[in-house]
Amino acid sequence: MSETVHVVDDHAAVRRSLAALLGAAGHAVALHESGEALLAEAEGGLGGGCVILDVRMPGMDGLEVLAALRARPAPPPVVLVTGHADIPLAVRGMRAGAFDFVEKPYTEARILGAVEEALAAARAAGAAREHAASARRRLALLSPREAEVLALLVEGLPNKLVAARLGISPRTVEVHRANLMEKLEARSLPEAVRLHLLAGQSPSG
């Protein structure tokens, strides 16, 4: 369910109200009566959507659900909904990775604005993950020696020092460098470095 807004609240009337509001704004909506119900569905992934999560609920509270979501790969942006007395909890949630918190009673514009921003963040995170996956696919084409050369180039070493570090000639480094640039489809060394970093690797030094 791509770009679905998941509403988690133990009050059926609140779920129905948010479903009507979000549906009228053109959003796909999934309703969950508890954090446990959301997490059970999240086992199969929540797509590129976001979560509206009440802080105070029986069973798992909002912060516990947030922590469980954040522990999973590619967690969705979470908008916490809180009463005035629960603002300190919501602030703790922000520190723990929540995207936003909305205080009750909220206006339609406030909750819709938070959802739009959360969905935009989800789209940006999805694009970043795809860029990283693409970079990893390209890096997988490199031979072990080419990968070593690239890692040293990422450290900022010139060809001569790369050659000395690896015990090969500068000319051989140039050959490996040309080959890895071709495999990565990189037009410049900075572009190759960017791909290396996008793939989640870091300079070994």
Rank of each mutant, 00 (worst) to 15 (best):
A85H: 07
K104T: 06
G49W: 10
G93Q: 08
L150T: 11
P73W: 08
A164D: 10
I168Q: 01
A163Y: 04
E148C: 02
V91R: 11
L180Q: 10
L150R: 04
R92V: 02
H176L: 12
G167V: 03
R95W: 03
G93W: 05
E117Q: 07
R171K: 02
R123N: 03
R136Q: 15
L152G: 12
A135P: 00
A109Y: 03
A122I: 05
A122N: 04
V115F: 04
P58D: 08
V81R: 08
I168P: 00
L141H: 08
S143A: 12
T172F: 13
D54Q: 11
N159G: 11
R137G: 01
L112T: 02
T172Y: 15
A140R: 12
D86C: 03
M181N: 09
E146Q: 14
G83P: 02
E148L: 04
R177M: 13
R145M: 12
G167C: 04
L141D: 10
D100Q: 12
R95K: 12
E174N: 04
A85Y: 03
L39M: 08
T172N: 13
A122P: 02
L157M: 13
L53V: 03
A135Q: 05
K160I: 06
A140Q: 11
L112V: 06
A163M: 08
M181Y: 08
V149H: 00
I87A: 06
A71T: 06
E64Q: 15
D86K: 03
N159A: 15
G83S: 15
A135D: 01
A68Q: 15
D54Y: 06
A128T: 04
G44C: 07
V65G: 08
P144V: 03
V175Q: 12
Y106T: 01
E146L: 04
S134W: 07
P58A: 11
A135E: 03
A98T: 03
P75N: 09
P88W: 08
A120Q: 14
T172S: 14
P144T: 04
A90W: 00
R110M: 07
